[in-house]
Design a protein around this nucleic acid. Structure first.
Lengths: 255, 255
DNA sequence: GTCACGCCTTGATCCAGCGCAAAGAACGCA
DNA sequence: TGCGTTCTTTGCGCTGGATCAAGGCGTGAC
């Protein structure tokens, strides 16, 4: 746990950067002390539920390694993944008794957990840290709105391309300061989860990816691992809703 | 402006409740004073842009009357409304230099505006108020995730039913303490905007509503005004079932 | 080894909803 | 009062992608 607050953690995908939230806490002895006292690291296996939808679980925290899926389910069983959380993102619904979404382990993972009550008390004592959390929530809102554009407007091919680019750049972030442009995409989730995230079906995902391979956009090494052969083409196929791809993306927010 | 902070404002749709944010500020003379000094009320006509997408507009605030649409546009012109803002909601992207979404007047409206810089400085001086803003952002995130479920999973019929129920309950909120269950739905936006919000087309919206009327779920008074004849049925059609009272109704999908 | 179970791929069929086109309906403007 | 503009409704054909149904492939248990 101390490691989390003093240096980056090593995970299977390389060095993970600290979340702004932890960086802030690590820089102040008092904060670090307090945080360590309420934190506990827990491991979850793929498929395990961390927080149930509509459930009164008082758990919040951050991803250390692995991937969480944030999802909603309809009474008849249809479901939608409304977010994927990679390290070092925060998870859990602060300031609400019940969570409107389920949080599940999409892969085996390790989480830094806090009881919600203790975490909120901590935030109340330290407004500047609460501010960091607000920034994280705002980022999540931006991501959700971007995904609404995808779900509302884009054809399946564009959705898959957008998803692959997202994963690709996700991997870039893990590289830290020496971020090298990745060519390899490691999809950490099943076709089914991809489909639930993208608002389509596993069969359609499969067909689309095979089609990309046939067109020379990417090479399939195995079902969860691809080499991107033509990122510009992939960006074009994604509908270019995000960054143009060529330019090094400047941080959107600075305040 | 003072009225905004001391009592509810009257609008065409009845008494609007204060946002928690304003209620908080109104209760404290210092806060009220400060806020009034940086606020200015502005009117916008339907169709006007308040903040452009990707633009560096330093404007944030709250809706006093009318409706704002929050939308994103793709390079080829396809667009998605990612949120509708009614009074007394807050608008604008705090703590970000550029707004990732456009904010436009969906109807004629009056807004309580702040320069983003001044507003952020105000929040920095008053963490408890910033906390209120965080709660508002969290609510917005919940709404966005709910809408992702709608866009990713629901058939058009369910989307339209969900939308009508949302507007219906929106009107209820306006009733304040004495909230009477509304039967009349006033859709404040065009069919086209509804379509962009629901990820479909104006024609399909029109067909669906006519179909609802034919089935006796609602009565069309004019294109923007309906009487809900069977709210339980409408709730069932929205997919947010859990309604054992309604026996039949061939649901399109069941599991 | 081989059996079984998940996950992925591929094929064939079908239909919900999109796109186009054109006819009302409502509203402002001169 | 007539005209243009914008919004809504309705008809019709087409298609993207869902659905159903096999079949392939990799992995772990024994």
């Amino acid at each position: 746990m101390e490691a989390l607050l003093s240096t980056s953690e090593r995970s299977e995908s390389g060095r993970q950067p600290l979340h702004r939230f932890f960086a802030h806490c690590a820089a102040d002895a008092t904060l670090r002390e307090e945080l360590i006292r309420i934190a506990h690291v827990r491991g979850f296996s793929s498929g395990e539920t961390i927080v149930g939808e509509g459930e009164e679980s008082g758990l919040v925290g951050a991803v250390i390694s692995g991937v969480l899926r944030v999802q909603k389910t309809m009474p008849d069983g249809r479901q939608q993944i409304v977010g994927l959380l990679f390290a070092p993102n925060l998870f859990g619904r602060v300031f609400s008794r019940v969570s409107p979404v389920a949080i599940e382990a999409a892969t085996d993972c390790r989480l830094c957990c806090f009881s919600r009550a203790a975490f909120e008390a901590f935030l109340a004592r330290h407004p500047s840290v609460e501010h960091d959390v607000m920034l994280a929530v705002l980022d999540e809102l931006d991501a959700a709105q971007e995904w609404m554009l995808l779900l509302g407007c884009k054809a399946v091919q564009e959705r898959v391309a957008s998803f692959l680019l997202m994963i690709l750049h996700q991997a870039d972030v893990g590289g830290g300061a020496a971020r090298r442009r990745q060519r390899m995409v490691n999809v950490p989730i099943t076709r089914h989860d991809m489909a639930v995230y993208l608002g389509t079906t596993a069969e359609t995902i499969s067909r689309t990816i095979q089609d990309f391979a046939r067109r020379g956009v990417l090479r399939i090494i195995n079902p969860q691992r691809f080499e991107v052969l033509d990122e510009a083409r992939l960006a074009f196929l994604s509908g270019r809703a995000t960054d143009p791809g060529d330019v090094d993306e400047p941080s959107l927010r600075s305040a």
